[in-house]
Design a binder for these strands. Structure first.
Lengths: 135, 135
DNA sequence: CAAAACTGTAACATTTTTTATTACTAAATA
DNA sequence: TATTTAGTAATAAAAAATGTTACAGTTTTG
């Protein structure tokens, strides 16, 4: 998972919202994020798969928003990045012969799931437009 | 930051709570987590710095809880791990000449800070004893 | 039609972060 | 005194994230 996936995605979307009439090139966007244009195109591919943006190939091509920014919530964006809130798991599978090791991940998952609900409720209340209008 | 720091820490503390009368060795704990004992000792060093556990060196040494599990909240544990909830930042410093790039991190920080408050409130309501008694 | 400016991807390289190992000192106990 | 344990530093290995290069395919413009 790209650690800055959400940050990059929302940066892209904010730019697109700021220039609603233009197709922005991945190079232009990459210049604002200070990121490799290929990585920008990868995130855009994900946004396209969710029908949130549309791209035009060829000269003067680029990407623009395909939805109403007032109706796109940060929660939806968050979900599109496949990221989840949480505090991680130990890398290796814990010892199944230990009553704690056997069940720890299940209990952590339950805990993190609740976190996601709380944070999800927060993010649901913020639209891309809200976020972008802060700038 | 160790990605599973919180998970490891709470695993350790749960074990210590389950065996309140014993000094558990880092090797025993490592066996439950399936982690290198040196890493366990590092996390324990952090817990010691926060006066949550005490260790005894030498033969039959190990670590045990030094506080009342009913009074230690997951929020406190969370804070001891220096981890924060959030959805990351782009790795590189964004373009300061772009109005979006210039301010994005500040706005993300504000957003994440709110997340931390929400999650903190949740974790404050759960004690180590609560967590451990689930097992 | 040809050149230029884009997207879309795949393959590979590099860098950074995490995790693991080794090795050693010091302390406590039997 | 031998053994078992913590404490810690240094290093190695593995994994993950990020960056680069390359090139095919599209669209626009001259």
């Amino acid at each position: 998972m790209i650690s800055g996936k959400f940050a990059i995605t929302i940066h892209i979307l904010t730019l697109l919202h700021k220039f609603p009439n233009d197709y922005l090139s991945s190079e232009f966007i990459a210049g604002s994020i200070n990121l490799n244009p290929v990585l920008v195109r990868k995130e855009i591919a994900n946004l396209k798969a969710h029908h949130v943006v549309e791209s035009k190939e060829g000269k003067n091509g680029g990407t623009k928003l395909a939805v109403n920014a007032a109706e796109l919530t940060l929660k939806q964006i968050f979900e599109m990045t496949f990221e989840t809130i949480g505090l991680g798991f130990a890398k290796n599978q814990p010892n199944p012969d230990c009553p704690v090791g056997k069940n720890i991940n299940q209990h952590l998952e339950a805990l993190y799931s609740e976190m996601n609900q709380k944070v999800g409720a927060q993010l649901e209340g913020i639209s891309l437009e809200d976020f972008s209008n802060q700038f």
